[in-house]
């Protein structure tokens, strides 16, 4: 009993010392293949090329099997204390937000400021997408379900968890029952892989993507030379050095670079940082803000703007605020 009490106190101390990391949001989204083969799609003309895009609203309003699968998955994830973002509700919220934003005026008659980027950003998004696909496979009188569930990191585009398989054929069970069985069968495997991804995140830092760009009106570029800490080198090299010093175990890869941009991938940022003597959760914006501060200091004295693309991606654009 005493041991248990001491263990609980130790756990509480650890929890209070480290705080909570930023929790990624997860949303189930039907795959493009599912939507297009079932006819839940719209065709758009993209600069002369006809493109077929999934229509999620149509899919959710008309497909009872899809709704059931999503609902079952949501139930399981809630049971694991990781509630999912609901795609249907999110689409509804976006529509309402647009309408309210257009109608809202202040007492002086001013309307809400919205840049084109603000409007563009108003889309249904999550940090992890559970890409769901299933279809009924018929073998004579027997039906079976081919089921694929992929967990995709929205920023690194990596498949972080997946589960796939074809269920056993049945002549008597209804399609709905077979879908439910497929969800039940695969969710533990999927959650196991998701857990392994989170464990890796806590051990080696959160994997994010960072872009360094330059405004076209700026008179600096990344190949400009500076003297810093007794060394003369290009700005791009000093930014790379900063990355090496501030990532977990110096883990990042510079996948592409010119004098106008640098694309950093597989950047492992720490989960926590200290502020006012307390541990706080780190996200890409906070991490990139530190880079902004570094660039603002001498000898660089550069102004820059931080543009956030969600929990796992941010851009630093040098030249203007």
């Amino acid at each position: 009993m005493r041991k248990m009490l001491m263990f609980s106190v130790a756990l509480m101390l650890v929890a209070s010392a480290f705080g909570q990391a930023k929790k990624p949001t997860i949303m189930v989204v039907p795959s493009d293949r599912y939507c297009i083969t079932k006819g839940y799609s719209t065709k758009i003309n993209n600069q002369g090329t006809e493109t077929e895009l999934p229509d999620y609203k149509k899919a959710l309003q008309n497909d009872a099997e899809l709704r059931m699968a999503i609902s079952k998955m949501s139930g399981i994830m809630s049971d694991r204390e990781f509630p999912l973002k609901d795609l249907e509700q999110e689409l509804r919220n976006i529509a309402n937000e647009s309408a309210e934003s257009a109608m809202l005026t202040g007492s002086g008659g001013s309307s809400v400021t919205e840049s084109p980027i603000d409007v563009l950003k108003r889309t249904a998004k999550a940090d992890i997408i559970m890409d769901l696909d299933f279809s009924v496979v018929k073998q004579g009188p027997k039906n079976s379900i081919m089921y694929t569930l992929n967990g995709l990191d929205a920023y690194t585009s990596k498949n972080i968890a997946s589960s796939t398989g074809v269920g056993s054929p049945s002549t008597s069970a209804s399609v709905e029952l077979l879908i439910e069985e497929a969800v039940l069968s695969h969710m533990d495997e999927f959650c196991g892989r998701l857990q392994a991804h989170f464990d890796d995140m806590f051990n080696n830092g959160r994997e994010v993507k960072i872009m360094v760009k330059v405004f076209d009106g700026s008179d600096v570029n990344l190949s400009d030379e500076y003297d810093y800490n007794g060394e003369t080198d290009e700005l791009s090299i000093f930014i790379e050095d900063w990355m090496a010093d501030n990532t977990v175990n110096g883990r990042f890869s510079l996948s592409d670079a010119t004098e106008n941009f640098q694309r950093y991938e597989q950047v492992r940022i720490p989960m926590f940082y200290e502020r006012n003597g307390r541990q706080r959760a780190m996200d890409t914006r906070t991490f990139v803000n530190n880079l902004k501060k570094f660039l603002a200091e001498a000898p660089f004295n550069l102004e820059s703007k931080v543009y956030m693309r969600g929990l796992g991606e941010a851009w630093v654009i040098i030249g203007e605020k």
């Binding site: 929790k23 694991r80 204390e81 990781f82 989170f198």
Partner: peptide, 8 residues
């Protein structure tokens, strides 16, 4: 065992 949401 670790919870799926532990640490968040």
């Amino acid at each position: 065992a670790r919870k799926l949401n532990s640490g968040f």
